[in-house]
Design a protein around this nucleic acid. Structure first.
Length: 419
RNA sequence: GGAAGAGUGGGUGAGAGGCUGAAACCAGUCGUUUGCUAAAUGACCGUGCGAGGAAACUUGUACCGAGGGUUCGAAUCCCUCCUCUUCCGCCA
């Protein structure tokens, strides 16, 4: 959410900034509504003052007048509320402004590679896809998921399920013990206001699984990422400056409708309605955002180094970034069967965009109340890590070597092979 | 699910229709004094949205869980909802 106060100072700069994201808004309308809103507020407050004075005077002769003012006040107040709602609706649908470091661009083709690491595996046979490998091992079952649930779900079984658990534990341990994150096991359901706080609502309602919840009025959603619930830990809060930075990590299932991706990645488990992901979230002082983003991204790539998987890091161009982000690094892992890199992590700084929605603040050195910076990043998407291990560690006979770092988490198992 | 009680500023907690943006205490900020791993003392110390100002700041208004209502006037009375606590029931 953008601050109207800031926008007001320089409407044309705001308009230019949004151009970077190919967003066009009716800036004149915004100006007009802002003026109207403030005008109505002034009128309202003048009347309120008059009323207050009458009631203070306790002069019974004026009581009738006060009553008349109340009627006028109500209509002005209603009009002002309506204007404010209209303004908020416009503002809540505008994405974050890209940071200066972010390259201009239209879509994923304009993203820029930053580094490439790890050596690509060489095979003296044609490498199989993860779903072939998994099905041949008898450890991935898509048909069964279709029977019990529907498309875009999967059963993971036996040693592959163990591998999934091992990945979760390995990643959590690394972030907790080595990187200073606080472990959280959060609710997987978020309220409407929480979804609004991180920017999933109102604009991306179609991507969310809403669940039926009889009691209460507020709507509930399955989390599309732990970012939602971890970031909202500091919703409506004035944080003690000395508690910053705050760093949280959780391994949770994530639920996404994947609306609008019909026909994309339909085979295999690249794109599922449900998947596990280890998520990191940082709450920092605004000026530390860029530094924290580098730190967080390193936490993610470090895992790939430890797993000995080849990857590259790219910076997303302005047109390809998510709604709340000011700057995003994607980390892409090598998939031999596709002969290309695929996203396995996305680390973003959201500057104060989310904290303005959530009302997350802290007192700075001058005792001014300022908005905090928020960051989130996957470290890593477990389903896709599983895919990467299957494909990169496959042998000609279809068995899979277990990466060394994971063996302690798997009773020292060295190979996955069919029975 | 039934019954009872409670939600006040960063925290604890007074207030029970006008003098309350809200006592007191803790935490915090800035001083003073004595000195030294600290004590004493004074002042300041909520948030949102407006207005004026380059700014420090000044000023208006709203906010005591949320939303309505009664009243000239509501933290205080009434209604609805949410949340929490305790007791009972049910249950992994």
């Amino acid at each position: 959410m953008h601050n109207l106060k800031d926008i007001r100072n320089n409407f044309s700069k705001f308009e230019k900034d949004l151009n970077k994201r190919s967003i066009k808004i009716d800036i004149e309308n915004l100006k007009k509504l802002d003026l109207l809103n403030r005008d109505l507020i002034q009128k309202k407050e003048a009347l309120e003052k008059e009323k207050k004075e009458i009631s203070k005077s306790k002069d019974e002769n004026l009581f009738k007048k006060s009553k008349e003012i109340s009627i006028e006040l109500e209509s002005i107040s209603n009009e002002q509320k309506k204007t404010k709602i209209e303004l908020d609706l416009i503002l809540s649908n505008i994405p974050n402004i890209p940071h200066n470091d972010v390259p201009d661009g239209k879509d994923e083709n304009d993203n820029v590679e930053v580094i490439k690491k790890g050596k690509l595996p060489q095979f003296d046979f044609k490498p199989k896809s993860h779903y072939e490998l998994g099905e041949n091992l008898g450890m991935l079952n898509f048909d069964l998921a279709t029977k019990t649930t529907g498309a875009r779900f999967v059963f993971i079984e036996e040693k592959l399920a163990l591998l999934e658990r091992a990945l979760s534990n390995f990643m959590l341990d690394t972030h907790i013990l080595q990187n200073g994150y606080k472990e959280i096991s959060p609710p997987l359901i978020a309220s409407e206001n929480t979804m609004y706080g991180t920017g999933q609502l109102p604009k991306f309602e179609n991507d969310q699984f809403e669940i039926k919840f009889d009691e209460g009025l507020e709507r509930k959603f399955l989390i599309p990422t732990a970012e939602v619930i971890l970031t909202n830990i500091v919703k409506n809060k004035i944080i003690d400056q000395k508690d910053l930075p705050m760093r949280f990590v959780a391994s949770t299932p994530c639920f996404r409708k994947e609306a609008g991706s019909y026909g994309k990645d339909t085979k295999g488990m690249i794109r599922q309605h449900q998947f596990y992901k280890v998520e990191m979230v940082s709450i920092v002082e605004e000026q530390s955002c860029m530094e924290e983003l580098e730190r967080m991204t390193n936490c993610a790539t470090d895992l790939l180094d430890k797993l000995e998987l080849p990857y590259r890091k790219i910076i997303l161009c302005s047109g390809d970034m998510g709604f709340s982000a000011e700057k995003t690094y994607d980390i892409e892992v090598w998939l031999p069967s596709e002969n290309k890199y695929r996203e396995i992590s996305s680390c973003s700084s959201c500057s104060t965009f989310q904290s303005k929605r959530m009302k997350t603040r802290y007192k700075d050195k001058n005792n001014n109340t300022v908005f905090a910076g928020t960051l989130n990043g996957s470290g890593l998407a477990i389903g896709r890590t599983l895919i990467a291990i299957l494909e990169n560690y496959q042998k000609k006979d279809g068995s899979i070597i277990v990466p060394k770092i994971l063996r302690p988490y798997m009773n020292n198992l060295e190979t996955l092979s069919a029975k």
